[in-house]
């Protein structure tokens, strides 16, 4: 199997997963107690004519599958309908928040990968006191919830030292990154500790492998061995964990968004759920699912690039 076929297959699988997910996302909302009608009516008990009029306005009088497909068709064009609460297009509500959350998650991912791998390597390669200190730091990172980290960061670096703004997303790319620094750190610390542990274990295991012994028996310098024979071999679990973490960050950013008063996708979703704003919930969840599936695809592609045994290259 060659790369083009491999990619085509993966993309087809991705489309199938998204189709199923969209069906579930759309369908589940109609099975929740109350359903859309009770929300639209509120506390009023409308006359049968009024109910019929509302049902018609929201196409609720049509069969479920018809409604699903028309919603799906619109969604493919970026039209997720109108928010029942804000009377605004869902896509407009999402677009600015998507940028904020997307930047935040990317920023946090960068921190997680760089700091997590660096700490893990440090622990694995320098056994002894350094390893002990690194492990202790990782445990603290892992055990501290993001909202605590967020509050501490605000108190120390924003209010105390005044290095960073207290809240808000900022304007322009540089200013945004500046504003997002503390939130990204708050969001990433726990995952940094987690990834560092995985990296340490994986690198430690790889250092004891037979092929590393071969490299040593050939008199190659230790730094060369780590670069050429340990890092790449040890990176499969690291990539897996990074992928899962990033996917989790997208939904988990809501806490951090609240602390730093960032109007992101997470806060929008939580509010929409509380207000039973169906169109918004559907739209946001679909975006999250898409991001999740794409992250997984990227992880799978990384596997194939890292390990030739998993790659679609020509067989012997």
């Amino acid at each position: 199997m060659r790369w083009p076929i491999f990619l085509a297959r993966r993309l087809a699988a991705l489309a199938a997963v998204l189709l199923v997910a969209s069906f579930l996302v759309y369908g589940l909302l109609y099975t929740v107690p109350g359903g859309p009608m009770s929300f639209l009516l509120g506390n009023r008990s409308g006359t049968p004519e009024q109910i019929a009029a509302i049902r018609h306005q929201y196409h609720l009088d049509q069969p479920f599958l018809v409604r699903y497909f028309s919603w799906l068709g619109d969604a493919l064009h970026g039209d997720f309908g109108q928010s029942l609460v804000y009377r605004q297009d869902v896509s407009d509500l999402m677009s600015t928040r998507l940028t904020t959350t997307g930047l935040l998650v990317l920023y946090a991912t960068g921190i997680i990968v760089v700091a997590g791998v660096a700490l893990g390597l440090l622990g694995a390669l320098r056994r002894g006191p350094v390893d002990t200190v690194v492990s202790a730091v990782n445990s603290v990172f892992l055990a501290t919830p993001p909202f605590v980290v967020g509050v501490v960061l605000v108190v120390v670096f924003a209010l105390g030292l005044g290095w960073f703004p207290v809240f808000g997303p900022g304007t322009g790319f540089g200013d945004r990154l500046y504003h997002l620094t503390l939130p990204a750190i708050a969001l990433s610390l726990g995952s940094v500790g987690f990834l560092a542990r995985i990296t340490r274990a994986s690198v430690g295991e790889e250092l004891g492998r037979e092929h590393v012994e071969t490299a040593r028996s050939r008199g190659l310098p230790e730094s060369h061995i780590v670069r050429r024979h340990v890092l790449r071999n040890a990176s499969i679990p690291v990539v897996t964990v990074t992928g899962l973490t990033v996917a989790g960050l997208i939904a988990g950013s809501v806490v951090v968004e609240n602390i730093f008063a960032l109007d992101g996708l997470g806060s929008l979703l939580v509010r929409a759920i509380l207000q039973r704003d169906f169109a918004v919930v559907q739209g946001v969840v679909l975006v999250l699912v898409t991001a999740f599936v794409i992250v997984n695809l990227v992880v799978d592609l990384c596997y194939s690039l890292i390990d030739p045994r998993l790659s679609p290259g020509e067989a012997a």
């Binding site: 037979e210 092929h211 071969t214 790449r232 890292i306």
Partner: peptide, 15 residues
């Protein structure tokens, strides 16, 4: 130089 018993384990599989 050393020749090992298990070439499959003793040669890096990803290179």
């Amino acid at each position: 130089a050393m020749i090992f018993q298990e070439p499959r384990a003793h040669i890096n599989p990803v290179r």
